[in-house]
């Protein structure tokens, strides 16, 4: 993972830029994409409730790392879509999945000493991408870069909103 703020900003950038072309993508739905970007890092639940504790309690094999896969992105996107009112199910499904996918996609390019990415496509495929990687999870520059782009996207969104508002109405006679 890059730091979580970078992932959330990437999802914000994608979803907000999409909202320029798709009117139905409101700021509420941009938030859904940001939440989707958090999903893969829920594997950090390992720090709160270790998988070994779950295994010993349930007598079943268990691993939180499944959160960081395409399979979990699909299942949780469907789950989140089922929790909203019917007219928002499809956009919530799409944007939550977009957020989770943006996280997995950016993690493919993270530096790994093995030269291979994680098997993020699991359980559909165990393929690992051979990528040298050009950032580490604790590097500062990805956050600076995404923060700059996100600021530019935010300003452009405000400019577009101001431009689309009707001008001052003529005073009543």
């Amino acid at each position: 993972m890059a730091d979580l703020l970078t992932h959330v900003l990437v999802a914000y950038i994608f979803a907000t830029a999409l909202s320029w072309y798709v009117d139905s993508i409101t700021p509420a739905l941009v938030t859904v994409a940001m939440a989707g970007a958090i999903l893969p890092d829920l594997n950090r639940l390992e720090f709160v409730l270790p998988a070994t504790a779950v295994e010993s309690t349930l007598s079943l094999p268990f691993s939180w790392s499944a959160f960081h896969t395409l399979g979990a992105a699909v299942v949780v996107s469907l789950l989140v879509a089922a929790l909203v009112t019917p007219e928002y199910r499809l956009p919530v499904l799409g944007l939550f999945f977009l957020g989770a996918l943006s996280h997995l996609f950016t993690d493919v390019f993270m530096y790994n000493p093995t030269g291979l990415s994680g098997s993020y496509l699991w359980p559909f495929s165990s393929h690992r991408f051979a990528v040298d990687g050009f950032y580490r999870s604790y590097d500062r520059w990805p956050l600076l870069l995404t923060a700059l782009v996100a600021t530019a996207v935010w300003r452009e969104t405000r400019r577009r909103a101001a431009a689309s508002r009707p001008g001052p109405s003529s005073p009543p006679r």
Binding site: A51, V54, P61, F62, A66, W122, S126
Partner: peptide, 11 residues
């Protein structure tokens, strides 16, 4: 998925 991942060691 959590159980399958744990079983397959496909972490």
């Amino acid at each position: 998925l959590f159980v399958l991942d744990g079983a397959n060691h496909s972490s």
